[in-house]
Structure formats: structure tokens, C-alpha cells
Simulated assay, not measured.
Amino acid sequence: MTTVSQVFDEMKNRLTPEKAQKINASYFFDIGGDNGGKWSVDLTKGDNWVTEGEPSDPAQCTIFVKKAEDWVALAAGKMNPTMAFMQGKIKVKGNMSLALKLQSLLS
């Protein structure tokens, strides 16, 4: 089974300077449950976009996911992000339009 950490490692490997520049935003992911964690994705920097832990500056968009397995399912495309949001499995704080760009981060 894929872990939360693996999802962020894959994100690191897929991000390109072009993609980072296109999104040009900062995210904070707070993933709950067993094997969850806190991750920062700062696409306003030149490199080293994905780091474990809380950001040093407030993120423009914070994503809360109650269960680690829901985050993994979202990343794998097995869960619809809109439905997950409507069902309360995901909460978004900050810039909602950045949350809508999340799929491009995961693919």
C-alpha cells in the first residue's frame, strides 16, 4: 500500500520548474490518521519545493485531510476531490482556487 510519504516523494519527482512556475503558490498539507504527517509544498521557490513539516511562512492554501488513506486514494485518482470535499474528508483554508489546482500537482 502506498504511504503519505511516498505520495509526496512522487510529487517531488514529477514537479518540474515549469510546473512550479505555472502554479507559483505555497501549500501546507496536514494529513491526519495513522502514517499521516505535515508537508509543505512551496512552488514560489526555485527548487526544493516539497519538504516535510510546517512551512516557515504561512501557506496560501492549507489542505486538511482527516485520514492518510483518503489522501493516498486522492493522489491515486481513486477518490474524487470534489466529493471528498463535500463529504468533509478534506477541508481547505485559504485560497480555494489553489485547491482546485491540486490535481495538476498530483499528476
Rank of each mutant, 00 (worst) to 15 (best):
P81C: 09
R14K: 13
I90T: 01
S107R: 03
M1F: 11
K22Y: 08
L43V: 06
N35G: 12
A20E: 03
V50Y: 07
L43H: 01
Q21N: 13
S104H: 13
F29G: 03
Q21S: 12
P58T: 06
S97R: 05
F29R: 00
Q6W: 07
S5K: 15
T62F: 08
M1W: 14
G32L: 03
A76Q: 14
M1V: 14
D70Q: 07
A73L: 14
K38P: 07
P55E: 07
Q6K: 12
L105Q: 01
V72Q: 03
P55W: 02
K66G: 11
M96H: 12
R14C: 06
T62Q: 12
A99S: 03
I90F: 02
L43Q: 00
M79T: 07
S107A: 14
E18V: 15
F64A: 07
S5E: 10
K101L: 07
N24D: 10
L43A: 02
E69L: 03
V92A: 04
E54D: 15
F28W: 08
N48A: 10
K78W: 13
L98G: 00
S40C: 08
P17K: 04
S5C: 09
W39H: 06
F29W: 09
D47W: 06
S5R: 15
G88C: 10
E10N: 12
V7Y: 03
D47G: 08
V41Q: 02
M11A: 12
K22E: 11
M1E: 11
R14W: 02
D70M: 05
Q60W: 02
M96Q: 09
I31R: 01
P58A: 09
N48E: 14
